[in-house]
């Protein structure tokens, strides 16, 4: 698949994931669902060699910002940072082992939430706090769902990139 088609495919996939997250997997009502969009961004950072996946990651974060009651830049920049950190570490650490991927998903979840909480604490926004215990729990849920998804998606993606 050529890179233009791959970018289009990833953009459509990003839209599909945000749709799922804002309908059947919406966290309102106290449910803890996996954050498919964050898992997708970590996946892009590990597997995608297509130029433009950084823009897909930022675009996905922007969709999250708008659909989460218009929090300007919060998800765009936190997820972009997570993408950059994972991408940058991929030249020093072998990220295609499942154990490492699990750690990366968990670490990315904790990192993005700490990034967001730092902003919120500095700006003193009332009500938008997430306890550390819940952040860790979300990290565990994302890891438990993300690793099997990576296994399946990694195989499919390798075929698509050929």
């Amino acid at each position: 698949m050529n890179s233009a088609l791959m970018i289009l495919f990833l953009a459509v996939l990003s839209l599909a994931l945000i749709t799922l997250q804002s309908t059947v997997l919406s966290p309102g009502g106290g449910h803890i669902y996996p954050d498919l969009n964050l898992i997708f961004i970590v996946f892009l950072a590990i597997y995608s060699e297509v130029r433009g996946s950084l823009l897909i990651a930022a675009g996905n974060g922007y969709l999250m910002d708008v659909l989460s009651g218009n929090l300007p830049g919060t998800f765009t920049l936190s997820r972009l940072s997570a993408y950059i950190l994972v991408k940058s570490s991929s030249s020093h650490v072998y990220l295609k082992k499942y154990l490492v991927q699990g750690l990366v998903i968990f670490g990315s979840t904790v990192f993005t939430w700490l990034f967001i909480m730092t902003i919120i604490v500095i700006r003193g926004e009332p009500g938008l706090r997430l306890p550390l215990g819940e952040i860790l729990l979300r990290g565990v849920v994302n890891t438990a769902v993300g690793v099997p998804l990576f296994w399946a998606a990694g195989k499919a993606y390798a075929r698509l990139q050929r």
């Binding site: 919406s26 989460s68 997430l130």
Partner: peptide
């Protein structure tokens, strides 16, 4: 109602 916020950070939003 066709959707809701995808984020726990601001979950009190519907579409």
């Amino acid at each position: 109602v066709i959707g809701a916020s995808p984020s726990i950070l601001r979950s009190q939003v519907i579409i």
